[in-house]
Amino acid sequence: MLTSDKKEFYEALLDKKTEYEGIFYVGVKTTGVFCRPTCPARKPKFENCEFFETAQQALLASFRPCKRCRPLSHPNHVSELVRTLVEAVEENPEKRWKDKDFQELSVDASTARRQFKKRFGMTFVEYARARRMGLAMKQIRVGETVMDAQLSSGYESSSGFRDAFSRIMGEAPALVENSSVLKASWLDTKLGPMIAIADEEFLFLLEFVDRRGLEREVERLREKTKSAIIPGRTQPINLIEKELTQYFNGELREFKTPLALLGSPFQKSVWHELKKIPIGQTASYSRIAESIGNPSAFRAVARANGANQLAIIIPCHRVINANGELGGYGGGLSRKRWLINHEKLIKKVLSKSR
């Protein structure tokens, strides 16, 4: 988000301008809550504000909904079902919801899904997951110092932060014998926060935090590498953060960060072929299949595309349907469209500078 937008939103927050309802949400660093623009609470200082376009982004950044302005419901209208479920999540944010949990609250799961989807564009399960992921990602943002202090006290505490992190990232390295360690870091980008996981030599994972199935991806990575994953920084993470900044500024044609590709021989062949697609261009699944010498395997190519754990660097967003439609993308079609258009601009700028 541009600094000018942040200043505009902050002025709207101070003036409680109703026309900005639904345009942005504000996370308050000092309290850990996020609010709607018209919240009646005392206004924070500008430097203590983080602005988000959606409630889901605020949740994924570890902020909890304000109890005064209730940003997860329309102004002046709070569904009792929505209120009940939001409060239930706050009581146990690391919980993974199942059908029996809805039954215990005398809530119909399909009704909860519809009401949450209608209110703010995501289902209740997606909301609960975003809250859980947000808490876990907060551990990544605060860094190793806090994590080390928590690890030293063991897992007796019922802290939702640590429980959420351990559920997603795995056991603490102090509790895993003979395990290797991967470091995870939160990276803010123009298209939303991403998580990077690497050792001291290679980058293993780069994904948007709100990607569906991210928890399973991290779990598979942990199992394949037999590693514990903790918050921290390594040289590959520092490098990819620098390169992403250059990329989003339109100054980078090719990523140089060393990568660890964990996949089958077929998947690796597809990923290597993806990296050959020039910036500013696209290719179809069928063309990729032909390029690897297996023209009938376009569906398998699509699956390999979906299994890519290194978003943007291995440019699966450059693969589209043969009819010109965008096809799928784990980070969302709006991001895929933006990336393709952004790279066309990069191509024009770089070609002029030659």
Rank of each mutant, 00 (worst) to 15 (best):
E50V: 11
E156F: 12
G192Q: 10
R211K: 08
V209P: 08
Q281A: 11
N321F: 08
L221K: 12
L261A: 07
V86F: 05
C49W: 03
E177Y: 07
P295Y: 00
G232T: 13
R299V: 04
W271N: 03
S152D: 02
A228W: 10
F165C: 08
A109Y: 02
Y25S: 03
N178Y: 04
K190H: 11
H77Q: 05
T18Q: 08
G213L: 01
K16V: 01
F102G: 06
S227Y: 05
M1V: 07
T84N: 13
S110V: 00
F208E: 06
Q309M: 13
A55E: 12
K276N: 12
A307D: 05
L2V: 10
I340L: 10
C49E: 07
Q139R: 10
C39H: 01
R141D: 00
F266N: 09
R113W: 04
L14F: 06
D163I: 06
E21S: 03
A260V: 04
Q56G: 02
M122V: 05
E19D: 09
M147H: 12
F120S: 08
P173H: 10
F165Y: 11
D188T: 15
A112L: 04
F266D: 12
V146R: 11
A55K: 12
R141N: 01
E87W: 05
E11T: 09
C49F: 08
F161Q: 04
I292F: 09
L262F: 06
E50Y: 09
A55S: 15
E47P: 01
V86H: 03
L85I: 03
D148E: 08
E215P: 01
P75T: 02
I314L: 15
R70H: 00
Y127R: 05
E144M: 07
A12D: 05
G213T: 00
F24E: 06
S353N: 10
L135Y: 09
S269N: 13
Q57Y: 13
K256D: 10
Q115V: 09
G250L: 04
S351C: 00
M133G: 12
S179A: 13
A58M: 05
R220M: 13
G170T: 02
V142D: 05
A198Y: 04
A228R: 10
F165L: 08
K275A: 09
V301M: 02
E19Y: 09
T282Y: 04
E156R: 14
S157E: 13
V301T: 08
R212W: 02
E126G: 00
K138Q: 11
E217T: 07
Q103Y: 11
T282A: 03
P37F: 04
S286I: 10
Y10T: 05
P236Q: 07
F161A: 06
D210V: 02
R354K: 10
K268V: 09
H74Y: 00
S152N: 08
E80P: 04
S73C: 08
K275L: 11
